[in-house]
Amino acid sequence: MSDFQESFDALCAAVPRLRDILIEIGFEKWSRAHCPARRYHYMTSNSAESMNALSNHARKIPITQLIEFFVQSVQKWFYDRRKEGIQGEHFLTPWAQKKIRGKVEGSRSWVVAGISQDSFDVDDGGKRGLVDFSNGTCTCRVWQVSGLPCGHVIAVSRFLGEPDCAHYAMPFYSNEVYKSTYVEHINPVPDKSEWEVPDGLVNLQPPVITKRQAGRPKENKRILSQGEDPTPVYCGRCKTYGHSRASCLAPPKTKTSSRTVPRPEPSTAQVEAGQFQDYVLQHTWPSYNLGDD
């Protein structure tokens, strides 16, 4: 529990507002050390990721062949683990034995003091653990949460002169439970020639398997977070949303000056010979009012 408190204080020191949020949610909902129920180890998706890695080369084959691949894999796993359980002579599985051996080496220097027939105080060099065999608990909660004896329980077992502390582990770590888990036989799928194919089935073509091109993909769109709205595309030419300026089909707008003077159309009026000089002086370009400039 002290390890949890130190980690919690360090996390809240980095993010001050996080303390109130986590306390309001409740420790039992997000902390494994405060979980009232017993659950096996950590809640992760490692099993699914392992299956994805196993079937990486078989994902694009037809579905019937993919199912046969999984059946053969599970059949091999059950056989190997069933054989391993039969050959095991210890009370616990090899995996549980390895975990306990690591804790045995780390608790050799711990000091144990008896309190009663079933209660013991263990000094582990800075932190203390109170072991109560009558209730099957330890104040560090490692024994209750993981199901394997913690270092304090192992130190008490050594203090009592017991040759092995395997009997303090939960029953689901036993070799008998391990063998019963894989006692069922996975039978292989019959040959294709022995299948009973009903009438009216449609033959499907196998999927086209294309080789990925070298280099970075052309499109690498980021997956939006939950509640995040996509940024609309804006066109600077037509001032609308839905496309960019590069793909805009609207014609470009030309800029016209408000001070541009239109050129007058040529005159086709008929003028008498005596009035020609006055007409020319009246209709020459300087006579137009071009502004104050």
Rank of each mutant, 00 (worst) to 15 (best):
S7I: 02
A14C: 09
P16Y: 07
L18K: 03
D20C: 05
G26H: 07
K29T: 07
A37P: 03
Y40R: 14
T44F: 12
E49P: 11
E49W: 05
S50W: 06
M51D: 05
A53L: 10
L54Y: 13
T64S: 03
I67A: 04
F70D: 01
F70R: 01
V74A: 12
K76N: 06
K76V: 05
Y79G: 01
R81D: 01
K83Y: 02
E84F: 00
P94L: 02
Q97D: 04
K98M: 05
K103I: 09
V104Y: 04
S107G: 11
D123I: 03
D124W: 04
L130W: 04
V131E: 00
F133W: 13
N135S: 15
G136H: 15
C138L: 05
T139M: 00
S157E: 00
S157W: 00
S157R: 00
L160M: 14
G161T: 03
D164H: 08
D164Y: 02
A169R: 07
Y178A: 08
K179E: 01
T181M: 03
Y182P: 03
H185D: 06
E194L: 14
Q205L: 13
P207E: 07
R237G: 10
S247C: 03
A250V: 13
P264K: 15
T268S: 13
G274L: 03
Q275K: 13
Q275L: 05
W285T: 07
N289D: 15
L290D: 09
D293R: 08
